[in-house]
Design a protein around this nucleic acid. Structure first.
Length: 482
RNA sequence: GCCGCGUUCGUCUAGGGGUCUAGGACGCCGGCCUUUCACGCCGGUAACACGGGUUCAAAUCCCGUACGCGGUACCA
């Protein structure tokens, strides 16, 4: 049977980084098996529905390079809100075979019961208002009369549900700890528990891969499969992603640590999707080699469920940044320039593509984030607005202005404006003035870029060009003085 | 509270009875390269949660404890 895996988010907000990780593992497993990856929207909670969430989810998955084979945006009938009749049909089936029952309890009655520390289990259900405690004609009459009611699944009396999770291994849940979960809400919508079982079965899902927060409710799902006479799919529960300090990676804690929570924020902050994917894949999964840097295609090849770790992993922004640097290099100057061009133009106006490429060639290996081109390396596109005060203090000596002016003269006269020639010229100048080369190099860098750090000075000057360099050197000599 | 899952360097992890004086990566710290900052290279720091078993032998198997995380909804 061919493998079919679904990513089934709830459109209650923008795609979360943890959601992307789940989607990625689903996707990688599907691809590694030559299977199908589908997207299904679990929008049965109308009160939490967010209108633009679905678009954000598909956009972000696409950005990350996770190609969806089947999904609502491709015309498939995969929005649960549009499948209500289906769930009701199977709820009816469960009702008919006695594995589900009607219940009429008010929210107040439920709250009161829970206040006593009870759950809606095989004991409590005989004290509530439902098909167990009401005569059948009353149940029918109330339903006909439109009295609010839900359908609950009837958890069997005694049993232990066992299954082998593809990540966690053998798991056992005594059934007496489970409550009679609502499967059809009073608004007629199914709960997640019913809907996901029905859909996974109908859609031919072979492997349910989802976050660990679902592990506890899996026994209920297995019971539902059994009651419906269906074979449950393989279950695989992924460890959660924790914040760097160990807690839940909540919006607030993440924000405090500078960690974006929504996938769109990574995109907006200029992380490369390849890097994010690589980082996320290694958060909880490890190949059987020492390889760390993977393209998406390589991950698709190497991924296996049995090498997913069972324990939760903490988010490490430094490691993400390292992956980003690695992938920036892998991408190469052509691709990076394509990705960054729009931002460069927005910041500095029209830029010659060939020039951008030369800047990238000089700066490439030291970039962690592509946006550094318009921040750290802005001086390649416009004159420095100021000279780093600490650098000036350290490098700008009494003789600097004179040396910089002299070097500007040289630059204007030199025949070929390339790094080799520029270096020779500078060293000659230093020798002629009887000073160390550093005495010239540092002030020149400061004058040309405004900072003390950067690529090889002479390559930098070559890229900047003759006029630009001469002008910046003279201006600095004038501004910084003496 | 109850149920479930987990626990190897600061972090991600390898390892699944002897090859472990526990390996790799990120980070951090040194050094080399370089009269800048990086890159690169070399080196260093640093971990089997604890207690009992089982075994000739345990990071690896079993039990318990602690801690962490998840669940305990007419949310997913």
């Amino acid at each position: 049977m061919s493998v079919r895996v679904r990513f089934a988010p709830s459109p209650t907000g923008y795609l979360h980084i943890g959601g992307l990780r789940t989607a990625l593992f689903c996707y990688l497993f599907a691809r590694s098996q030559g299977g199908t990856f589908l997207l299904r929207l679990e929008d049965t909670d109308r009160s939490r529905f967010v209108a633009d969430a679905e678009e954000d989810i598909t956009t972000c998955l696409e950005w990350a390079g996770l190609v969806i084979d089947e999904g609502p945006h491709l015309g498939a009938d995969y929005r649960q809100s549009a499948r209500t009749a289906l769930y009701r049909q199977y709820a009816k089936q469960l009702l008919d075979v006695g594995r589900a029952y009607y219940a009429f309890d008010t929210p107040e009655a439920l709250r009161e019961m829970r206040g006593k520390g009870r759950t809606y289990d095989r004991e409590t259900r005989h004290k509530m208002r439902n098909a167990f405690t009401l005569p059948e004609h009353a149940v029918q009459a109330w339903i006909v009369a439109g009295r609010p009611h839900v359908v609950r699944m009837r958890i069997p009396e005694r049993n232990t549900v066992r299954f082998t999770d593809a990540v966690k291994g053998p798991v056992a849940f005594p059934v007496h700890g489970l409550d009679d979960q609502v499967i059809i809400k009073s608004d007629g919508q199914p709960t997640y528990h019913l809907a996901n079982v029905v859909d996974d079965h109908l859609m031919g899902i072979t492997h349910v891969i989802r976050g660990e927060e679902w592990l506890s409710s899996t026994p209920k799902h297995i019971l539902l499969y059994n009651a419906l006479g269906w074979e449950p799919p393989v279950m695989a529960h992924l460890p959660l992603i924790l914040s760097p300090h160990g807690g839940k990676l909540s919006k607030r804690s993440a924000a405090r640590l500078g960690i974006p929570v929504n996938v769109r924020d990574y995109r907006q902050q200029g992380y490369e999707p390849e890097a994010l994917v690589n980082f996320l894949a290694l958060l909880g999964w490890h190949p059987d080699t020492a390889q760390e840097v993977f393209s998406r295609e390589a991950l698709e090849q190497a991924f296996t469920l049995d090498r997913v770790a069972p324990s939760p992993a903490r988010f490490d922004l430094d490691k993400l940044r390292w992956f980003n640097q690695q992938h920036l290099r892998l991408l190469g100057p052509d691709e990076v320039s394509r990705r960054i061009r729009a931002q460069v133009q927005a910041s500095f106006g029209a830029v010659d593509p060939a020039y951008l490429l030369r800047v990238l060639a000089v700066v490439g290996a030291r970039m962690v984030l592509r946006k550094e081109i318009i921040t750290t390396y802005a001086y390649f596109f416009r004159d420095p607005e100021e000279y780093e005060p600490r650098g000036v203090k350290k490098r700008w000596k009494a003789d600097s202005a004179g040396l910089v002016r002299a070097y500007a003269d040289t630059l204007e006269q030199v025949e070929a404006f390339d790094a080799g020639v520029l270096e020779t010229a500078l060293r000659d100048l230093a020798a002629a003035r009887n000073v160390g080369a550093g005495r010239v190099i540092h002030p020149v860098r400061l004058a040309a870029s405004g900072t003390t750090a950067g690529p090889s000075l002479f390559e930098m000057l070559e890229v900047l060009g003759r006029e630009c360099c001469a002008q910046r050197l003279r201006r600095a000599a004038q501004v910084l003085g003496t």
